[in-house]
Design a protein around this nucleic acid. Structure first.
Lengths: 135, 135
DNA sequence: TAATAACCTACTAAATCGATAGGTTAATAG
DNA sequence: CTATTAACCTATCGATTTAGTAGGTTATTA
């Protein structure tokens, strides 16, 4: 299941990407429009800023804005930052690999074999889609 | 993330499917071989029996056995029973659909659009794979 | 200097996860 | 008939995660 954090993050980024001008968008505006708790959204946008997706400006007229072009922001990148690993088990994760404490041998593990396929197909979809595709 | 429940369940089913004879396999044997807490595994095999994947026999020489051929057991079916929905958001789930309380319109929701693609690609992989493929 | 909006820290209620504990029931062996 | 075996059932539990809330501080603008 996708966490609300990730879901809200994607919605917020889409909202910002949809803006005709490149003017900063305020958290409050996104929160109201997308039915998200403003405080919760604040923490999410902060993460996205620290991860290099967004820039910010304080004070009146401030807000968040995209740093890169929507078409250059892959969904894999967004989801990895907000949700963590895309793989369903750590032992097939490319960016968050971890060995299973059960499972003596990954090569003979049935789950491993299956989850590599799931990972790859998911990766294909999320790698092909950019923020521009969601606009 | 895949829960241990599902992971263990798949491993156990694979273990049973690998048996040369169709003799019942005991929980204790699977637990030991696959490094799974026996009590936890008991509860998982019970679910799989109640869902129609396994038959059981009590007493000495008892255990669990497959009811259908491994090649006739799709991974989608197993995962739906143990893990629940395959979709990453309830609003794109085929078997566990639920409307999002935020999101007034699914048609214009960016997350919805994306997650349908993820769902379909995952469904393809899990639908193509049967227990026989994991053996 | 006041208002604004991002930024930061800490806390919390509820749910879920991965078990563990301690039994009961049904089938088999002797 | 009795003991053993292994599935079956019920309850509980500590740890972690989730989705927030509360209450402030800092930087920018009018």
């Amino acid at each position: 299941m996708l966490s609300k954090k990730t879901k809200y993050g994607i919605k917020a980024l889409t909202f910002i990407a949809r803006q005709p001008e490149r003017n900063p968008v305020q958290t409050s505006e996104i929160a109201k429009s997308e039915n998200i708790s403003q405080k919760f959204l604040e923490s999410i946008l902060l993460i996205l800023r620290k991860s290099g997706f967004l820039g910010s400006k304080k004070g009146k007229g401030g807000g968040y804005y995209l740093i890169k072009e929507p078409k250059d922001i892959k969904m894999t990148a967004i989801i990895r930052v907000l949700e963590g690993p895309i793989a369903m088990v750590p032992c097939v994760s490319l960016n968050y690999y971890e060995k299973c404490d059960d499972c003596p041998d990954e090569k003979t593990c049935s789950v491993h074999k299956l989850m590599i396929q799931v990972r790859d197909s998911t990766l294909n979809v999320l790698g092909d889609n950019t923020l521009a595709d969601l606009t």
